[in-house]
Computed example of a mutant assay.
Amino acid sequence: MAIDQASFQLLMASIQRFIAGRLVPAEDGVEENDEVPADVVEDMKAIGLFGLAIPEEYGGVGLSMAQECADWLEATAGIAQGVGKDGFGASAD
């Protein structure tokens, strides 16, 4: 079961803001420590990033598989703009 298009667009905008406001700024620390900070993981949980396709009656967001794929494509594109400024797997050293 999918959520309606308006709700999906709001979710996508929220995730884009999260990426820009929390993930991209944390990039250097993640790279240095090889770990995502616990507070960032907790924030990801709080906005439902670990339950996107789980039905709402079980505590998830309730996205269809197509919506979840669209969401992750958007999210990875947003992350790629900030993460790996020198390219994935490339080192500035």
Rank of each mutant, 00 (worst) to 15 (best):
M1Y: 07
A2E: 13
I3Q: 11
I3V: 15
Q5N: 09
Q5L: 15
Q5G: 08
A6V: 14
S7F: 12
F8Y: 15
Q9R: 14
Q9M: 09
L10P: 00
L10H: 12
L11G: 08
L11F: 14
M12T: 12
M12C: 12
S14L: 10
I15G: 12
Q16R: 09
Q16F: 05
R17G: 03
F18Q: 03
A20D: 07
G21M: 06
G21L: 03
R22L: 11
R22A: 06
L23I: 15
V24Q: 08
V24S: 08
V24P: 10
V24N: 09
V24D: 00
E27C: 13
D28I: 02
D28M: 06
G29I: 05
V30F: 05
V30K: 04
V30M: 14
V30N: 04
E31A: 11
E32G: 08
D34R: 13
D34Q: 12
E35R: 12
V36T: 11
P37Q: 04
A38G: 02
D39I: 02
D39P: 00
D39R: 09
V40K: 08
V40A: 08
E42D: 10
E42Y: 02
D43Y: 01
D43N: 07
M44R: 08
M44P: 01
I47H: 09
G48E: 04
G48K: 02
G48Q: 02
L49C: 11
L49I: 10
G51S: 11
A53H: 10
A53C: 13
A53R: 11
I54L: 08
P55N: 11
P55L: 09
E56Y: 08
Y58Q: 13
G59M: 09
G60T: 10
V61W: 00
V61G: 11
G62E: 03
G62K: 06
S64Y: 03
S64D: 04
A66E: 02
Q67N: 03
E68T: 05
C69A: 06
C69K: 11
C69P: 00
D71M: 02
D71K: 01
W72K: 03
L73I: 09
L73K: 00
A75K: 01
A75M: 04
A77P: 00
A77L: 04
A77N: 06
G78W: 01
G78R: 01
A80Q: 02
A80V: 01
A80H: 03
G82Q: 02
G82A: 04
G84C: 08
D86Y: 06
D86S: 10
G87K: 00
G87N: 05
G87D: 07
G89A: 11
A90P: 00
A90D: 09
A90K: 13
A90S: 13
D93C: 04
D93V: 08
